[in-house]
Computed example of a mutant assay.
Amino acid sequence: MIKKYPLDELSTALGRIMGLLLTEEKVDRAVQLLSRAVRDAIPGTIGAGVSILDPHARPLSSGSTDSVVERADALQYELVQGPCLTAWATQQSLVIRDVATETRWPNWSAAVVDMPIRSVVSSPLMADGEAIGAMKIYAAVPDVFDDSTTALMELFAAPTATLLSHIQTTEIPERISESLQSALYSRDLINRACGVLMERHTLTEDEALQQLMREARVSRSTLSEVSAALLGVALDRPRGTSDGLR
């Protein structure tokens, strides 16, 4: 059955987005308002956010409505897989009815198993025929979103992409550069840590990654933090990992 959404609520949310084209100059503030508008307009949504990606699929998250979105996004970037990255790469919207039974991104699905994320929609942000990023929403229970949700998300994605493609600030190049450097460093740490575990315990690459993810969940740390602890190197940010993998 096609879900019905209050027209007045949707119109108000879209109006807020279109107004940003004329009134907002800062990317962070604009995208944050966009994410809140999407979250508030789509029933069942607990969080929303936008990922701005460079041509090499290196991500920069912006405007997340809560820490759950930030953490789920960070895991996609660290594992180099997930619905947001796939929506960008294929330039098509994706619906996950239940993360617990989803098989397209096994490592990401396993990594978010303890989070309040069961339903997901990711839509590409298209500007001048190019995907400049992706917008996503999360729900805490399965089967919240369907094809009608995808159509609604694409309504939001169009003005969002227009907004982001036209905003220019002197902060953008530096912020993106720093984010990409951090993402590449994290990816290298995880790959090196997997290599160490494979050699020490005669594991396959997938088994090594699964062990890292288990340690991350137990210690409530990121994959990068666990990998850094295993390798005996320091991260720029504080970490609270255990030494369970040593």
Rank of each mutant, 00 (worst) to 15 (best):
L53I: 09
S227D: 00
H56F: 11
A127S: 05
A127I: 05
D243W: 06
I117K: 00
E215S: 14
S51R: 01
I167P: 03
D98K: 02
S122W: 00
A139K: 01
N191G: 06
G133I: 04
G82L: 09
T12Y: 06
D147V: 11
T45P: 14
E24F: 04
A151S: 14
Y138Q: 04
L125K: 00
V141Q: 06
R39K: 07
E9V: 13
W108L: 15
S61E: 15
G63F: 04
R104P: 05
L33C: 05
V226C: 06
A157W: 02
S11Y: 08
D188H: 13
T160D: 00
G63L: 06
E205S: 11
R220F: 12
L212T: 01
D128F: 14
A37G: 10
I52Y: 09
T162W: 09
L231C: 03
G232E: 08
L189H: 01
H166Q: 05
G47I: 04
A183D: 05
W88G: 02
I46K: 03
T150P: 02
T170V: 12
Q81F: 07
L60A: 10
T170Q: 07
T86R: 10
C194P: 10
Y5E: 08
P124N: 02
D98L: 12
A48K: 00
F145N: 04
G63I: 04
R71H: 13
V233I: 08
E225R: 00
L223C: 01
T150A: 11
A110E: 15
L60Q: 11
G15W: 05
R36D: 10
V113T: 12
S186D: 14
A134L: 00
P238M: 05
L33Y: 07
L53Y: 02
A30N: 01
G129V: 14
P159N: 02
A37H: 01
R58A: 15
R239L: 09
W108A: 04
Y185E: 15
T23F: 06
D188M: 04
W88C: 08
L163V: 12
D40N: 08
E205F: 09
A48N: 01
D147T: 08
A74Y: 05
H166T: 11
S221C: 14
P124A: 06
L22V: 14
P124Q: 03
G232F: 09
I132S: 06
H201L: 15
G244T: 05
V95W: 08
C194F: 03
M213K: 00
V226D: 00
L164F: 05
V196G: 01
E207Q: 09
L245H: 00
L22E: 13
R29E: 15
R97L: 11
M115P: 02
A72G: 04
G49Y: 00
L152H: 02
D40T: 04
V196A: 12
M115C: 03
A72S: 14
A216V: 06
L155N: 08
G44K: 07
I172N: 11
S61N: 09
L33E: 10
T160W: 01
D114Y: 03
P83V: 12
Q81T: 13
G82S: 10
V141N: 03
D40G: 10
D243L: 13
E78T: 14
A110R: 11
E178S: 13
